[in-house]
Design a protein around this nucleic acid. Structure first.
Lengths: 184, 184
DNA sequence: TTGGAAATGTCGTTTATACAACACATTGAG
DNA sequence: CTCAATGTGTTGTATAAACGACATTTCCAA
């Protein structure tokens, strides 16, 4: 802990910007949203936007990361080990997240969104692996986290392709025995 | 116009405070709402509250005035003369306003609310009278505005006492011919 | 009744934000 | 093409808001 405690004005302004962005995203396409739109909705100065975010893509990235993280933290399996239950929870969080996104019209930024999701997954997997394998070589754990993040994300893409046929739980459970050793 | 253009930060902060207050009012009784609650909800410092409002009663007053004014401005009869249609609109605005308040649990402040409503009505009636009777004596118009504001407010109280029996439109229309001279 | 926790107001100092003005890129119409 | 309009990003200087400390008041349980 011992965080520097960010200024409440900063927290408030960031929240105003992010909320305004999500509000606008539900109304129009991402490509039609300007910085001016956002700052008008948030009732802040345009210059203030650039004080907090590099540009509108930086904002997109941070908003998506935060939304996804909230989804992931809803179930508190971050303290758990990397078992079947944890993987199922994560997979559900991803599919739910993408479902909520598709309602928000982010067409044309699937690749950006995918990268964000994979980055977040990688962080989470690495943390979990670190808890279970404290003594192992760090590099190996990082590579494993990369593989898992890409693999699980790919599974979510595959699941969406024929989402009518099977629930996400069943879908991911089919593969888990082959992914994680020692699970019956 | 030529207003000094209030600082956007002031507008934003005032809005945050008022919105937070209304949000809290819908959840708990007015007497249980503290300044700290409001500032926490609004994500502002407690000292900032006192920069904008004298105390929580001042806030209540301003919030109610604003909500009522919004109701009154929805129909743009403020340009009209003081005729039957205008009076009906105003009466409906009051009854709607009180209906929305009753959902918000302001028990124990009916007298404060009543005063605020009468004050706002007085302002509006005076403006309308001034438009129609530019040449008349100002003092007479002011007194008339006072009488109308108390009278119309009293009518809304009376209407609420047996609101099942008659619509507010019909209710107020019964008395209008006796109030405004020259209306058939 | 009392003591202490919580709420109310106030004040000086520090900091985030507003504003205005700028240069630059993009776009669309005549 | 040019010109106007619109969006992006960056600077300075002025000011609203945060902080934290303080004195006071309210209130409620021991």
């Amino acid at each position: 802990m011992t965080q520097p405690k960010t200024d409440p004005r900063v927290q408030r302004t960031r929240k105003l910007i992010m909320d305004s962005f999500m509000e606008l995203s539900s109304k129009k396409d991402f490509k039609d949203i300007t910085v001016k739109d956002i700052t008008a909705e948030a009732m802040i100065n345009r210059a203030t936007f650039y004080y907090h975010f590099e540009d509108i893509y930086d904002l997109l990235e941070k908003v998506l990361s935060e939304v996804l993280l909230v989804n992931l933290n809803c179930d508190d399996y971050q303290n758990d080990e990397l078992n079947e239950e944890a993987l199922v929870s994560i997979f559900l969080a991803i599919t739910n997240f993408q479902k909520s996104l598709s309602n928000r019209c982010h067409r044309g930024y699937e690749d950006t969104i995918a990268r964000i999701i994979r980055d977040q997954l990688e962080i989470i997997f690495y943390k979990m692996l670190l808890k279970q394998h404290k003594t192992e070589e760090d590099r190996a754990l990082k590579i494993t986290a990369v593989i898992l993040s890409w693999g699980i994300y790919g599974a979510s893409v595959e699941w969406r392709r024929d989402s009518k046929k099977i629930s996400p739980e069943e879908f991911i459970k089919l593969a888990i025995p082959y992914i994680i050793p020692g699970i019956k």
